[in-house]
Write a protein that binds this DNA or RNA. Structure first.
Lengths: 240, 240
DNA sequence: GAGTGGTCTAGACCACGGT
DNA sequence: CCGTGGTCTAGACCACTCC
């Protein structure tokens, strides 16, 4: 996520926005003024501003200027979490939450027609089918149902699965994860959810479905993450 | 969302990607090749590719090229829905779904400390507090709890609220909506949800919380949209 | 009409991937 | 090493906002 030296411009501007240095006018200085101040080209300035806009901190209006969006407690949190792109994603990659992983199921299967429709892996492809429970603060909070294409992600072991498969992919296989496409739904809890999750009185789960692609454009993973209510927040910013 | 004439490059490339014209190599032509073909500058080409990347259709790799991501039935849907940015958002703005709006509550209140903490509107500000039920296919599917800053969005009437408040804001007030920040959670259903929604056997709701800002950076809306399970899908693309 | 951001061009150098 | 995309500069013109 971090790039060259001129990325510093973004950092400085962000700090100023968060500190409220521009709150009097609710505007950033003009691009020309920033070009002068940082002594860089317009490209560099615009890139920094675009990054701020992507985080929902500012908004550029043609003919007017770059508007600073009101800072509110809630929205500050949103900014933060979006900046770090954490949230549930961390369950798949690096995580800093205190948690424990339990393997409920681990096997290798061949994709049939039914599994094909669900995962969109081709029929006949060998995949690892893994079920894992994530315990967070002594609660079974997430049930991960993973399918990894065994031709692209070979030699997964229960040992690896009990740690981070993403670390294995990145560090051991030295494969680059390019894009993850996600769907999020709310579903009535199924038998398997009741078995593995601490649902309490709730009878629904969140279902985050992920399709992950490597930098050759190949889908190597299909995952359903079923999680219990009241514990997770997803953030999103829509620009008009 | 649409810009200048050279936006056509994006359209052409997108069509080719979706048609599978680049599937043999799983690559786009190099930037230089596209510059030749379209006879434009590198800037224009890169802008078009970036747009494709934002939709999750392609992924640029330094030193390698622009990789086309595998097209699968599921992921195609994701692409589509993201391209149109619909989903639940449509409930706030333009909507094409067959639905009916029922006003359950309509009043004007002054923000107190408690409401301030929830909405992040300043204490003392007059707001419209509106509750609306969205019936979709004869089912009460969504309960919208809106708070609009009455100083920024004045003169809302029940008539306006029974239609589209966003249309009123855009067309009548001629205000520009700049950014909407969203949180999505799954919550145990509350009394008011049971009263107004066709929850069936489910005892949970999705809660989409929206903070909307105009192009002066001012937050003019806080909304909670409570929706029933199994009917809505949210999409997201994460790039690494 | 003056000021501002949005688009676009032409050209340079760098960093990474693959051979 | 070559080819590729990523960053950056300098400068131009256009479209919009606001006085």
């Amino acid at each position: 996520m971090v790039e060259t030296t001129n990325n510093d411009i973004y950092t400085v501007l962000k700090e100023r926005v968060l500190n409220g240095q521009y709150n009097i006018k609710m505007r950033l200085p003009t691009e020309d003024a920033l070009i002068e101040e940082f002594n860089v080209s317009r490209y560099a300035i615009r890139k920094a501003i675009k990054q701020l806009a992507n985080e929902g901190l500012v908004y550029s209006v043609k003919g007017k200027g770059v508007v600073v969006l009101e800072q509110t407690p809630q929205t500050k949190e949103i900014n933060l979490s979006l900046a770090k792109i954490n949230g549930l994603q961390s369950l798949n990659s690096d995580q800093q939450i205190d948690h424990k992983t339990i393997i409920a199921d681990f096997k290798q299967v061949i994709v049939d027609e039914k599994l094909h429709r669900k995962t969109s892996f081709s029929v006949g492809v060998p995949v690892y089918a893994i079920k894992r429970i994530r315990r967070i603060n002594t609660k079974s909070a997430v049930l991960d149902i993973n399918y990894f294409n065994a031709q692209i992600v070979p030699d997964i072991t229960p040992e690896i699965a009990s740690g981070s498969i993403y670390d294995y992919i990145k560090n051991d296989l030295e494969m680059k994860i390019a894009v993850v496409k996600r769907q999020l739904r709310i579903e009535h809890a199924s038998q398997i959810d009741y078995e593995h999750l601490n649902l309490g009185i709730n009878n629904c789960v969140g279902n985050m479905i992920s399709f992950a692609f490597n930098d050759n454009g190949k889908q190597f993973e299909y995952t359903e993450s079923h999680f219990i209510p009241d514990n997770f927040i997803f953030n999103q910013i829509i620009k008009f």
